[in-house]
């Protein structure tokens, strides 16, 4: 059951999107988010959708994967839609019962919000689907490197990020094992009321924490043995190099952003 969790899952492939420089991909994703939030009408959102679906198509990642990343957030989407339907005013009244009033604007706004959130999720999942966690943290480190001048621990942050990502699957596996071991001793992990359930988690959480600390300790020793001493003077195996295609991708994205801004101005 725990194995079904997919955080920052990466799908290796050889599409154009996969080959883009991860630094550019992060910047592009950022512009993409801005793009979705500047769009004020369904028309501009439609342009954003064209952009998203083209990118998804180019990435060769099955659409099913995106459905899977949206699914767990469905309740959140539904609640957002409800709140918008109930509280947005203006336009014709479509339905009225006591204090509940549904207006055409309300429906428009909630449809608009749902599409926007779905596009947002798709675009950002595309980043993690096409970029391995390690290159992603590399890119974050490079993008944030100007902050080093302000004594911001950029390298340490990136290292922490990559270690955390590295340990997620391991800890999930470990949790599964501990649950099985305690079940073998008759522990009831998934039954009873809330208080009992919380108490039943103790036999799982304590060994899990102990093992996480042990692993952290071992990892620290292993890093020291290999003379790790922070980011100072470290060279990289994989150098990030930008290619013309990165600039083209960036230009296309900026173009879409400007189109959306112009649409906003025209349809004012």
């Amino acid at each position: 059951m725990l194995k079904d969790i997919t955080i920052g899952q990466y799908f290796p492939s050889d599409s154009l999107i996969h080959r883009l420089d991860p630094r550019f991909k992060i910047v592009i994703t950022f512009i993409f988010i801005v793009m979705l939030f500047t769009g004020r009408s369904l028309v501009s959102l439609g342009i954003g959708a064209i952009y998203t679906f083209t990118a998804v198509f180019v990435s060769k990642i099955p659409l099913k994967m995106f459905v899977r990343s949206i699914k767990p957030l469905m309740p959140f989407l539904i609640i957002t839609a409800f709140i918008n339907i109930l509280f947005a005013n203006g336009g014709d009244v479509v339905f009225k019962w006591r204090f509940i009033k549904i207006t055409s604007d309300g429906i428009n706004v909630s449809v608009f919000m749902i599409i926007r959130i779905i596009l947002l999720l798709m675009g950002t999942s595309l980043l993690t689907y096409t970029t391995s966690p390690i290159t992603l943290t590399d890119a974050v480190e490079r993008l944030l490197s100007p902050l080093k001048k302000l004594k911001f621990p950029v390298h340490e942050l990136a290292m922490m990020m990559s270690i955390a990502l590295r340990f997620i699957p391991l800890l999930i596996e470990e949790t599964d094992r501990i649950i099985s071991a305690q079940k073998a001793r008759g522990a009831e992990i998934d039954s009873g009321n809330i208080v009992n359930r919380a108490r039943n988690l103790i036999p799982v959480l304590i060994p899990l924490f102990i093992s996480a600390f042990r692993r952290a300790d071992e990892l620290a020793t292993a890093m020291e043995c290999r003379c790790y001493c922070g980011g100072e003077g470290r060279t990289r195996l994989r150098q990030l190099k930008s290619a013309p295609r990165d600039y083209i991708a960036l230009a296309v994205t900026v173009l879409f952003l400007s189109v959306i801004i112009s649409v906003n101005i025209i349809f004012q």
Binding site: A181, I202, I210
Partner: peptide, 8 residues
């Protein structure tokens, strides 16, 4: 295996 890791 390694049952000592389940001690709590």
């Amino acid at each position: 295996q390694y049952p000592e890791y389940q001690i709590f």
